[in-house]
């Protein structure tokens, strides 16, 4: 059985006033193997964010079934870490304390948080170093650049060593150079730790560079219309993105999306 299984899932949001609730996804089928990296692409408004909420247990399917790590999802799945386009750091906390936030909340770290304060601090500093933010923990998040904040946000998503990492367009607001740098950061983290990752993105090059498999979703209500394995060898270098084999896959996905938008 796969690590994340989404079977025949439909999600309709609650009606607002007279309007009928939006049908965000319909008949969605998607499975993600443990330790693999998948990307989900699609036209805007295709229910990608709904997919994120379904897999983390923040929303429940109107029909169908979601299982994560062999368990039916009935509530928040605390083995997940999340990062978004907006890094949403708390400005009154140091970057280090922002990253520690999940440890204050999630079981079992929550109970031992005070006792393990020193160890937690070391963990945060080691994680910061691994994303290229060595020694930046004692700064406030607003003293960091956008790219640095996004790195910190990745650290916060990973501090409790989640088995499932959900990324919702995490590099969308960054400039092209910073974005490519962060692709490599996440590539290395994934290679080292092997957490299962679902990346929702608009950027096809990003999807092909990072993922083992790319799902293309249709316009709303979202369904998976194409499942494309990316068999490019790992470790992948950024130069790969300028090679023909890479460009061909991107081209192919683009044509699927163009069709999906019609």
């Amino acid at each position: 059985m796969s690590f994340v299984e989404i079977e025949n899932v439909s999600l309709r949001y609650k009606p607002q006033g007279d309007e009928e609730g939006t049908l965000a996804v319909e008949d969605l089928n998607l499975s993600v193997e443990k330790g693999s990296f998948v990307a989900v692409v699609g036209p805007s408004g295709c229910g990608k964010s709904s997919l994120m909420k379904l897999a983390t247990g923040l929303n429940f399917p109107t029909s169908g079934k979601v299982t994560v790590a062999g368990q039916d999802v009935h509530g928040p799945v605390s083995i997940t870490g999340m990062a978004f386009q907006n890094p949403v750091m708390l400005p009154w906390r140091l970057t280090r304390d922002n990253i520690m936030l999940p440890l204050e909340v999630v079981e079992p770290h929550r109970r031992t948080f005070r006792r393990d304060k020193a160890a937690n601090r070391e963990r945060v500093d080691a994680l910061l170093a691994s994303v290229g933010l060595e020694g930046q923990g004692s700064k406030y998040p607003w003293q960091l650049s956008g790219g640095m904040q996004q790195r910190a946000s990745l650290c916060r998503a990973l501090i409790h060593e989640p088995e499932l990492l959900m990324l919702d367009e995490p590099f969308g607001a960054l400039d092209a150079f910073t974005r490519e740098e962060l692709w490599q950061v996440i590539r290395d983290l994934h290679a080292e730790r092997k957490f299962t990752t679902i990346l929702v993105t608009h950027d096809l090059r990003e999807a092909v560079f990072l993922a083992d498999k790319v799902f293309v979703m249709s316009a709303r209500p979202g369904r998976v219309i194409v499942e494309r394995d990316v068999d490019l060898p790992r470790p992948r270098d950024i130069d790969l993105t300028y090679e023909k084999s890479f460009g061909d896959i991107v081209q192919e996905l683009r044509s699927h999306i163009a069709k999906a938008r019609e």
């Binding site: 923040l58 928040p76 999340m82 009154w92 936030l101 916060r156 998503a157």
Partner: peptide, 29 residues
């Protein structure tokens, strides 16, 4: 409160009280 922040915490199993004490109340100061 930013909905993303709420999602991050709720996905980790945070209760309303956690979200309020760690985010909401400091934020409203």
């Amino acid at each position: 409160i930013e909905p993303e922040m709420e999602d991050v915490l709720r996905a980790l199993g945070a209760k309303k009280l956690d979200i309020m004490t760690k985010v909401g109340i400091p934020r409203s100061m």
